[in-house]
Amino acid sequence: MLASMKAPFDSTLPFAVRTRGVGKGFGEGESRTEVLKEVDFSARLGELLMLVGPSGCGKTTLLSVIAGTLGADRGEVEVFGAPLHRLDKAAVTAFRAAHIGFIFQQYNLIPTLTCVENVSVPLRIQGHAAGPAERRAAAMLEQVGLGRRGHARPGTLSGGQQQRVAIARALVHEPRLIICDEPTAALDSENGAKVMDLLRGFAARPDRCVIIVTHDNRIFKYADRMTHMEDGRIDRTECAAASARRAEPAALVA
């Protein structure tokens, strides 16, 4: 398994993502809730980092802020050195299109498009013509083991296959940052392992960074580092081995 082949984490690698003093709240007046409270977070190139913590602790909000899909109220967000907090909306959108790949819990594949068409979407957003984009998409599907299902619609695939299509879509335009939101939550352990093997194999390269928000302790062993959040703050960041050791008994119980 690829997870077992991972090298020890190198803390001298350059930063892929860095936030300083990020705050984000929702609502107005008395009903306002501060979800992120002065969050200092970092992820490095070549790293597969998992962001874990109890529900409502702010993981997804932090992920959205890092991805540039949600603006921070305060603080600094740098992705590959680009200050997202200073860029306007259009520039952040263009940055996302060029540098970030997304894998969602619900897959978010368009049901009326074929797998090839779904995978080609990031390339089409970047302005690639249909023909070349779909050829690259087909090649990417081949790499995730779904080369023969390119013309199938997502609804005809199993959950694991759909998530592999989503991985192909996240990687097809060769982004440097892969953002994953609970990528294995809807999958059984066998499919979850396949998805994580793919992520480790294709995503976690020296020039890339993978950030995964998850509750799924079955996949903790794939992480290089784990950042624990609690009540809108970073509680601790640790190498995965120690974290996985703590998680394993729970996994066995589950």
Binding site: T93, N108, I125
Partner: peptide
């Protein structure tokens, strides 16, 4: 009905104009 898909496209970098 397509809001999540359109949101996903927006997240992937599709500008509002597109």
């Amino acid at each position: 009905e397509n809001l999540r898909n359109l949101g996903a496209m927006k997240a992937m970098g599709a500008p509002d104009g597109m």
